[in-house]
Structures are given as structure tokens and as C-alpha cells.
Write a protein that binds this DNA or RNA. Structure first.
Lengths: 340, 340
DNA sequence: CTGAAAGCGCTTACAG
DNA sequence: CTGAAAGCGCTTACAG
């Protein structure tokens, strides 16, 4: 393999000069720099990553800790991953993707072996067991998902509380007075999926303030269970005129359920969901929805992480908790309730 | 940070002895080994990955080159990725995930900088521009997807030709004589998605041999286009009694289309698809289908790659082209045609 | 069975 | 503006 020594020899300079010519960390005469660059080109030189990491203590790699839970909608995870890898690359970083069960061990291993300069944690739980390890690590970390304690880490998430409020407000403003909220299943909550109750609690509060009746259910996250659940709720609350969905599987199942019941949205029922645009597009879901902003959240987390790694932030700059305000993608499924 | 020097000092031995005690590359007296191990434990020592890579020329990282194309069904990609990362970890490797547009550049960069020990390429096209670079690289590579020329690389894919034949044979055996095959859109083929015509050609051939009429269409890969397409084909070929799907979006759209036409499968129409079990489960697709085996393909590719990296294969052992035979996951959507 | 030393390929103070 | 040298933290022939 071609080393910086080869480049130096070809350019007729010392190795240090060749190195400086490439890193630009001290001024080099134009003539020398051009000879070095020419040699690099001719020999096809690329620095050895391991050697550079050893010398600089910087790998230019970030560790991405995914976390796949049963009963969650896996395909949605891909958008987060792509947001992270793409933004990282734009900033000159590569991404080490870890999907192993035992996120704690993976984190400790990557940190101690100094394989990465920092971490992005996906799908962070209310009381995430990876957080103590991350706080003890010598590399910075950014989270996608809001944990109970945010000390020492940068946090990015959709503002689920605001999302819950907006859903209710939007329908209330149109004259709806009885709504149904369908959330993820209960075990998602138990495993730390705090976003579920953050949205639900805020929605309930707002409903109460506005005098709106809101029925809340945790439904199955896969078909056919979710289809049966939806039918049950609609049977039980015949006066309800609006449906709020914080459950991807429910959104995917709904077109069929409505068709079977001879209902049309928004004529008979207003519907507003919370899922990614990508998801909506793939399945052509006809419902207005708050975008999960998966790609954007991944990008922001990386951006902040790299700023910390490179010290663009003052040392110990206060950590940030960035909750993206909900944006409703309007697909025409919200309207005034049917007049009786 | 704690280095092997610290461990050696704590154990009262030389650094080389400490190293040998850990790698096991030469015999060490029990007493010494135990002192070293105790020191490791006490100090919490983990080898520095960069230093080790520099000394051994081995990174224990594999490069995973994904390739996302418009008009392909993105969520399916996640299964391949997980198969790769999980199997890699089992074998002691981490995975560097690259999603950038320019796969050629990424490959060249990772190879030249020696960031990885080998490559897994996903979604390989008939005439994939990454292959010349891979063949010139000093690291081995394994492909998921069958290219036109397989020289110098290990290849893993579903046997799409056999899949096409099996679909036709299965329905023919039950008495069907007129079928419709719905493939991915034409631009997928143009961009090198050879699996599309591999399945279609084999199905056509087999149909001809068996005296079965087979109508073949390239349909849209997203809704609502695909729904309209399906309706058009069913309108046009009212005598057709079986539907073959090599298009995930078509499978997702079909339940709605059949319901709207008051058709039931398999009573009125036998259906057989080709998509992943994961996909079927998520959307509860009620159709028998050939499993894409995404997870399994990812795992096999890694397995073979690691064997090459570690020389478990004789040097220059012949490369392998491993086409997984189609397995039909029976979901009860195939039956004899309706009697007139 | 163990140790002292060289070397992997970089970067970066230290000198001039 | 440039060079000689030390050092990053490992592994592994070479000696004993």
C-alpha cells in the first residue's frame, strides 16, 4: 500500500512536510504543496484510517445505536437511520451501525475501544439503560427520543405533547365534540415508550379544557388485531366524529375498516394521524397527519453531535433539548363533523 | 485511558507478555495469565481499535454498501441490513453502513483508507458500477443480488428464475390455465433490477411449456397508481384465475382492490406473491408468497465474507454463486380455479 | 516460558 | 518555510 512516506519521496520532501501539505495545518510554499498534491494524485494515496486515528485520537466515525422492539413498526426505523448516515457523510463522518440486542454492552465496547468519536442513540426510552453508560463514556452522545433525565446529553424528538394538543384543537375548532384516540399498545409504554403517554396525556388535558369528550385506547400494533380493535371502538362510540391515531398499524388498517363500514373520510369521520411522510407515501394513506420527522431528527442529532466532537460548541456548552413542533401534513381528511 | 502498558505494569510482566496472554498466540504460564487477566479486569482494559488495526492490518469491521433506488420498496431494505449487522456481530465484526448516493466513491474511499476488512454490497444491479472497483480492491466482497458477471466475488440471491417457474407450476397443477403476472415497474429493470426479468422470463417459459396463458405487466410500485393498474389488468383479463405478484406495492394494494370488486381469494382468484415474511406480517397480507429471504441472504453473505477475510477458505478458493431456492409460505390463497 | 525492541502509518511539537 | 524525531497503542519476529 502507498504511504505518506511514498508521497514524500515522490515529491522530494520530508514526511512531515507532506503531512502538513495535506492537512493544511501549517503554511507550505505553493511549489511544495503542488508537488505533494501531484504525488498524491499519481500514487493514489489515501491516509490509513487506523494510523490517523491512533495519532489524532479521532476516528471520524460515529456510532449509531439502533434499538428494535417487538410491537413497534420496524420500517419506520429506516428513516431515522438514513437521516443519520446521510447527514454524517455530509459532515465527513462514517457511521457504525449497531443493532445488537444488548445496547449497553455495545456502547461500552465501542467507547472503550475508541472506535467512534461519538454516539447517536435511537428510540430512547423514558428510563433508558444505555444512558448511564453514555454519560460515563468519554465520547459525547446525542439522542433521538426524550428520556426522563436529559442531563449530559443532547436530545432531539418530536414534541409529542404539542402533537396531542394540536390534534384535539384542530378538530375542536371545526366543531367536533367527541373523539377517539388510538395509541400504541400498552407494552410499548411499559418498555419505556414515553412518547405514547406524552401525546395521550396532553390530548386528554386539552380535550378536558375545551369540553371535548376523548376516548383513549391502546390498540394492537399489527394486523389483523388492529382492524378488530378499530371496529370495536367505532361500534362503541357511534357518536364520535373524529379519530386520532398515534399508531402506524392503525393508520395502515383504517382504509379497509372504513370501506367495510361504508364510511368515508372526512365526510363521516375526520381522521388525523402521526406518522412519517414516507410511510404515508408508500401506502398512500389518505389521512392528514403530523409528520414524525424521522429524517430531520436523525440529521439534527448528528449535526449537534459533530459540533460537540469538533468543539464548535464551547466546552461544556449547555446541552440542548430540541423538541420539533408538530407540522400537520394536510391530506384533506379533516372537516367539520357531519350534521345530523 | 488505560493501555496494555498499564496492564503489564499492574501484572508485573512485559507488554509483550501481556499481549500474548490476551491474544493466546503463544503459551503463557497459568500464573502469569491469571495475573494479566486480573489486571485487565481491575483496570477495565479494552484494546484500542486503531492501534490494533495499525499493527495487524485487521479492523474487524465490514463495510455495508446499501443502495436505495426510487421506486423500490424501501422498508424491505431494513431486513437485509439487519441480517448483515446481526450475523457480523455474532462473528465478532462491526458494520460500517454507507448509504451515500455515490457507492463507487464510498467503496474506493473505505477500501483505500483500510477502514474495513471486506464489503457486503446490497441491491446489486445486473451491470453494477461498484463491481469493477470492488474487484480492484484489496479486500474481499460478497454481494446480495446477482450481477451479470460474477467473477471474483461471492454472490447470494433468491433464485428468481426458479421462483417464476414454481409460481406457474403451482397454479397449473391445480388446474389454472390463464394467469396474470404483475412485476415491478420498468424503470427498476432499466436501472439493473435483473431479478424482475429473471422471474418473468422463467415464468413465461414455463407457462408456454405447460400450455398456460400468462399475461405479463410492469406496474407502478406505489399507490394509488398500483391500485388502478391492478383493476385494469383484472378488467382486461376476466378469464384469468390466478395472479402472480413480483411487486410489493401490488401485494399491499390488492386486499383493497379485491374487496372493491367483491372478489375473494382464493375462491374467485388464486394469488401468489414474492415478498418477505416480515412484510406479510406487518400488513397481514393474506397471500401465499415466496419469501424474499432478506435476512437469510444478508447472513449468508457475511458468513462467506468473514470466511474469506479470515482465510478459513483456501486462498483463492473458487467464488460461490448461491441462489436460494424459493420456499412458498402457504397462507391459503391458492386453490383450484372456480368452476364455471 | 518471557522480555526488549522494532514496526505498523500517521501527526505534531521541537528546532532551525 | 521545512526537516528530524518522538509518540500514538498495539503486535510480533528475534533472542534468550
Amino acid at each position: 500500500m502507498v504511504t505518506i512516506g511514498d508521497v514524500a519521496k515522490a515529491a522530494g520532501v520530508s514526511r512531515s512536510t507532506a503531512s502538513y501539505a495535506l492537512t493544511g495545518k501549517r503554511s507550505i510554499s505553493l511549489a511544495v504543496r503542488e508537488r505533494v498534491l501531484a504525488a498524491v494524485d499519481e500514487l493514489g494515496y489515501t491516509p490509513n484510517a487506523g494510523a490517523r486515528a491512533l495519532a489524532t485520537s479521532q476516528t471520524r466515525v460515529i456510532g449509531l445505536l439502533a434499538r428494535f422492539l417487538d410491537d413497534e413498526f420496524a420500517p419506520a426505523m429506516l428513516q431515522y437511520i438514513l437521516g443519520v448516515t446521510n447527514r454524517a457523510r455530509e459532515l465527513g463522518y462514517d457511521t457504525l451501525l449497531v443493532s445488537e440486542e444488548d445496547g449497553v454492552r455495545a456502547l461500552a465496547r465501542l467507547s472503550a475501544s475508541r472506535m467512534v468519536d461519538g454516539f447517536v442513540l435511537l428510540n430512547v426510552a423514558e428510563d433508558d439503560d444505555r444512558l448511564p453508560v453514555l454519560r460515563a463514556a468519554s465520547q459525547p452522545g446525542a439522542l433521538v427520543g426524550l428520556p426522563g433525565i436529559t442531563k449530559g446529553v443532547d436530545v432531539f424528538d418530536l414534541d409529542f405533547a404539542a402533537s396531542g394538543r394540536v390534534m384535539v384543537e384542530r378538530l375542536h375548532a371545526l366543531g367536533h365534540t367527541e373523539l377517539i384516540l388510538v395509541s400504541q399498545p400498552e407494552h410499548v409504554v411499559e418498555r419505556g415508550g414515553a412518547y405514547v403517554w406524552r401525546l395521550a396525556d396532553a390530548a386528554m388535558d386539552r380535550a378536558q379544557q375545551l369540553g371535548v369528550t376523548l376516548h383513549h385506547y391502546h390498540a394492537s400494533s399489527s394486523q389483523p388485531g388492529i382492524g378488530r380493535d378499530l371496529n370495536r371502538y367505532l361500534d362503541r362510540h357511534v357518536a364520535a366524529t373524529g379519530l386520532l391515531l398515534n399508531n402506524e398499524a392503525a393508520a395502515a388498517a383504517l382504509p379497509r375498516v372504513l370501506a367495510d363500514r361504508d364510511l368515508e373520510s372526512p365526510r363521516d369521520l375526520s381522521v388525523i394521524g402521526r406518522y412519517s411522510q414516507e410511510f404515508a407515501r408508500t401506502f398512500s394513506l389518505p389521512y392528514s397527519a403530523i409528520d414524525s420527522a424521522a429524517d430531520e431528527l436523525g440529521r439534527r442529532a448528528v449535526q449537534q453531535l459533530v459540533a460537540r466532537i469538533e468543539g464548535g460548541l464551547e466546552l461544556n456548552a449547555k446541552t440542548v433539548v430540541d423538541l420539533i413542533p408538530p407540522v400537520i401534513e394536510d391530506r384533506g381528511s379533516i372537516a367539520p363533523p357531519p350534521s345530523r
